[in-house]
Structures are given as structure tokens and as C-alpha cells.
Amino acid sequence: SEIVKHAEEALERGEFVRIEHNGRVIEIRNEEALEELRRWVEK
């Protein structure tokens, strides 16, 4: 997914991403959060 790709690229640069999706906000700061995002987006 485009969202996950964006988050992965930001993590590689040492940045973090805040994503709003279906009214929820998730902050991607590490691999664990990235995995959570993947599960969340796939639903």
C-alpha cells in the first residue's frame, strides 16, 4: 500500500510519520509500529 511504503521510506531516513486513517491517528516511529500499520491497512 502507498501508506505503508511512505512510512517505510520515512523510517529508513530516520523520520517518523503520523498517519490519519478512518478517523484514527497512528504514529510510525519503529518497525513495531510499521507492522501495526500493515495489519491496520489490510483490514
Rank of each mutant, 00 (worst) to 15 (best):
E42Q: 11
V25C: 11
E15F: 07
L34N: 00
E8H: 10
E2K: 08
I28F: 02
I26G: 00
K43N: 12
E31V: 13
V17D: 02
G23P: 00
R29V: 15
A7N: 01
R18S: 11
A10G: 05
V4E: 01
W40F: 06
V17M: 11
I28P: 00
L34D: 01
E31N: 11
E20V: 14
E36R: 09
E42V: 08
A33L: 09
V17S: 05
L37S: 00
E8N: 06
W40R: 04
N22H: 13
I3W: 12
E8K: 15
G14W: 02
G23W: 01
E15I: 10
V25Y: 09
A10S: 08
R39D: 10
V17W: 07
E32W: 11
W40S: 04
V41S: 04
E27L: 11
E8P: 00
G23Y: 04
W40I: 07
E8Q: 15
V4A: 04
V4G: 02
I26P: 00
E36Y: 09
I28H: 00
R13D: 02
R29Q: 08
A7D: 02
F16R: 05
E32K: 11
E12Y: 12
E35T: 07
E9A: 14
V41G: 02
A7C: 08
S1T: 11
E36S: 07
E2H: 10
R24A: 08
L34Q: 00
I3M: 11
V41P: 02
E27I: 14
V17A: 08
E20W: 14
N22G: 10
K5M: 07
V41R: 02
R29A: 11
E32N: 08
R29Y: 12
E27S: 06
F16M: 10
K5T: 07
L34I: 07
E20T: 11
E32C: 06
R13C: 04
A7F: 04
N30S: 12
N22R: 08
A10W: 05
R18Y: 11
N30F: 03
K43A: 14
V25A: 04
S1E: 12
V41T: 05
E15D: 10
E8C: 09
R29W: 12
R24E: 08
E42A: 12
K43G: 13
I19T: 03
V25H: 06
E31F: 14
S1N: 12
H21S: 07
E32S: 09
S1F: 14
L34G: 00
R18M: 12
A7M: 04
F16V: 14
W40Y: 07
E20H: 11
L37Y: 06
E27F: 13
R39P: 01
E20G: 03
V4L: 15
R29S: 11
R18K: 13
E31W: 15
I19L: 08
V41L: 13
W40T: 03
L37N: 00
H6F: 15
E27P: 03
H6M: 15
E27A: 07
L34M: 06
E15M: 07
L34E: 01
R13E: 03
K5I: 06
R39I: 12
L37D: 01
L34C: 02
R18P: 02
H21C: 08
A7H: 01
E20K: 09
E31M: 14
E35R: 08
E15T: 08
V17K: 03
R38N: 03
N22S: 08
E36A: 11
L37M: 03
A7Q: 00
E20N: 08
E15H: 08
E35I: 07
R39L: 13
G14T: 01
R24Q: 10
E31Y: 15
R29C: 15
I28M: 02
E20L: 12
E9R: 11
E12T: 12
E42C: 13
R24I: 13
R18T: 15
E15N: 07
G23R: 00
R29G: 08
I28C: 03
N30H: 06
K43L: 14
A10M: 11
E42D: 10
E42K: 09
R13H: 05
E8W: 12
R13A: 06
E12I: 13
R38W: 04
L11D: 01
L34A: 01
E8G: 08
G23A: 01
S1M: 13
N30V: 02
F16W: 13
V25N: 04
R13T: 03
L37I: 04
A10D: 01
V41M: 11
I19C: 06
L37K: 00
I19D: 00
A33N: 13
E9Q: 13
R39T: 11
E9T: 08
L11Y: 08
E35D: 11
E36W: 15
R24S: 08
V4M: 11
R13M: 05
E36M: 10
W40K: 03
E27T: 09
N30Q: 02
E9N: 10
E15P: 00
V25S: 05
V4I: 15
E31C: 11
E27Y: 13
V25K: 04
I3E: 03
L37C: 05
N30E: 04
K5W: 05
K5N: 06
F16N: 06
V25G: 02
S1P: 12
E9G: 07
G14Q: 05
I3C: 08
R13L: 04
E36P: 00
L34P: 00
I19W: 11
H6Q: 14
N22C: 10
L34R: 00
K43E: 14
G14S: 04
E31S: 12
R24V: 12
A7S: 03
L34Y: 01
R24N: 08
R29L: 13
R38Y: 05
A7R: 01
E31A: 14
R38T: 04
A33R: 05
W40N: 03
K43Q: 14
E32R: 09
V25T: 09
V17T: 07
I26Y: 14
V17P: 09
R24H: 11
E12H: 15
K43P: 06
N22Q: 10
V41D: 02
E31H: 14
H6P: 02
E36L: 10
L34V: 06
E9D: 11
V25W: 12
R24Y: 13
H21N: 05
A10Q: 07
R38G: 03
A33H: 12
R24K: 13
N30I: 02
E36V: 09
E27W: 14
A10K: 06
A33C: 07
E27Q: 06
V25E: 06
E42H: 09
V4Q: 02
I28K: 00
R13Q: 05
I28S: 00
F16C: 12
R13S: 05
V41W: 08
E8L: 13
R39F: 09
E2C: 14
E20S: 09
K43W: 14
R39V: 10
R29P: 04
I19F: 10
E15Q: 10
A33Q: 15
R39E: 11
R38C: 03
W40D: 04
N22Y: 12
E12A: 15
G23N: 06
V25F: 10
V17L: 14
E35S: 07
L11W: 08
V25I: 13
V17H: 05
E20P: 05
A7Y: 03
V17G: 03
R38F: 04
V4N: 02
A33E: 15
R38D: 02
I26V: 08
N30M: 02
K43T: 12
R13I: 04
W40E: 07
S1K: 14
E2R: 06
R24M: 13
W40Q: 05
E12L: 15
I3T: 06
G14P: 01
K5D: 04
H6I: 15
E8M: 15
E9M: 12
L11M: 06
I3P: 03
R29K: 12
S1V: 12
R39A: 14
L37W: 04
E12Q: 15
E8F: 11
R29N: 14
I28E: 00
E9I: 09
R13F: 02
E35H: 07
I26R: 01
E9L: 13
I3R: 03
E12K: 15
H21D: 04
V17Y: 12
E12R: 15
I28L: 04
L37F: 10
R38P: 01
E27D: 11
H6N: 10
S1Y: 15
A33D: 15
N22F: 13
R39G: 09
R13Y: 02
I28Q: 00
E35L: 07
E15Y: 07
E9V: 07
L11P: 01
S1I: 13
V25D: 03
I28T: 00
S1W: 15
K43S: 13
I3G: 03
N30C: 08
R39C: 10
H6V: 13
E36I: 10
V41F: 14
E36C: 05
E15S: 09
R39H: 12
V4T: 04
L37R: 00
E20D: 07
G23K: 02
E9F: 06
V4Y: 09
K43C: 07
R38Q: 05
G14C: 06
I28G: 00
E2S: 13
G14N: 05
E32M: 10
I19G: 00
E15C: 09
S1L: 13
R39Y: 10
R18G: 03
V4F: 10
I3Q: 06
R13N: 06
E2T: 11
F16K: 06
I3L: 15
I19Y: 08
